[in-house]
Design a protein around this nucleic acid. Sequence first.
DNA 1: CAACTGTATATTGGATCCAACTTTGCGCCG
DNA 2: CGGCGCAAAGTTGGATCCAATATACAGTTG
Lengths: 257, 257
Amino acid sequence: MSRPPTTQQFVLDELRKAILSGELAPNQPIRQDSVARRLGVSRVPLREALKTLEAEGQVVYRPHRGYTVAELSLEDLLEVYRLRELLETEAAHHATRRAETAELERVAAEHRAVAEAAEREDLVEMIAANRRFHFALLEPAGMPWLMRVIRTLWDATDAYRAVYYNSVDNRGRVLAEHEAILRAAWERDGTELARLLHAHRQHAVAALRDTMPPPSGGSATHGPEGRSHRTHSDGQSPAPGHHDAGPPPFPEGSGQE
Amino acid sequence: MSRPPTTQQFVLDELRKAILSGELAPNQPIRQDSVARRLGVSRVPLREALKTLEAEGQVVYRPHRGYTVAELSLEDLLEVYRLRELLETEAAHHATRRAETAELERVAAEHRAVAEAAEREDLVEMIAANRRFHFALLEPAGMPWLMRVIRTLWDATDAYRAVYYNSVDNRGRVLAEHEAILRAAWERDGTELARLLHAHRQHAVAALRDTMPPPSGGSATHGPEGRSHRTHSDGQSPAPGHHDAGPPPFPEGSGQE
DNA sequence: CAACTGTATATTGGATCCAACTTTGCGCCG
DNA sequence: CGGCGCAAAGTTGGATCCAATATACAGTTG
């Protein structure tokens, strides 16, 4: 159980998991002292990790007021998904032309991993495997900057991902659609692949519309500010191993009442 | 001229300027202690600013080895420009449909600012105004996440921007093309606008090809790595324009010999 | 009674200090 | 003479401490 090489990485991983799991809910203020103590670290590496998350759009920072988990309006989510489709279609187009057999087999393997996780009702692993599936599909495009942007867009919606996989219907649909996507990839049918990705995204968006709660009292459109500028980043390893979450839940109340 | 509300912001601005001007050249290691002292701050806000730049791809971080200014291969630059075209075309498409008159006048104003800066041979201001021009053009699309991504892609190539504007030919071309773009925007001709943006980008890329060093050298595809740690360094570097500046230069040698 | 102001408290921002790691240089051995 | 290993220096990573700012709460005043 080798811990990450630096504490910031460790903290970053933990924060990602906390956001993904809902432990840190949208709009919730992140009390540095509290979180740092819970993780058994000082505030310095925590703040560096938060800066990374800020760049990814997962948390919002206001000087002297601290960080809060980003709250995305439905419009925000729709926009992010739309951008993902635009970019992933582009990536898929190139990937289908260049993918080696070994790479395609990797995609197939991830597909099985998703299925298996669904079988076990292991939501966390299903989400992770789903992500690996999609990235394995696009990686052969050999466009690192494009991948980086796509990765950021995935990260940006992490706080809203779990809802989707709570639904058994959605889980089943995801599997079926992945299979079709996989087939199109094997046959190197870029057009069909684009069509499938579009449908895949459409269904996800439709599911989101249903599960999204009415915008909380806070200011509506959060997301990126008009400020000077800041942006995203590339993540890093999802930290192998370390399942069994023993540690107690995160601090603070939901923050959105 | 009030200083930014926080020191990190101040440091971030200074670092951006230093990278843009070439004071901090690609592949150059950033000695925290040295830079911090020069700016008259401690290392903490510096490190937070560096984290932001890392997320934007302007600097590369390797645990325990520190930050270096990102070195982009020609392939990297081409990919970034290609992505920008894809995304900016999308944004422009929406912007032309929604832009208010006031917004278009803002674009026109920025166009004049670019022209005036070119007149005065004020490269720094010309680069800044050029950026404002393009963003004013796209902003009316009302897609904050898209703008955010585009902003990042601009930032990512900041270290290589100055070269372009060193050429008088390029400066003239930029102005002429901006004017055409502006006209298409006024006439809300999305198709024509897309065509012009494409050409605009093509010319920029062509100019880049000339000024970039031989593509050979170290490992090919640089840019962002998969996950975990990055490996960027190595190889040679272009050492772009980097016209003499007034203020005292940054610390350290070029770091690329 | 509402609005305002001054003060107390909670929280973030920054600086300094110490520890961990990486790199460099020297001496030793083959 | 070249390669290896160990030690010292330089640099980054993290923790603690203090300062600055925002927020909450009284008390006061119109």
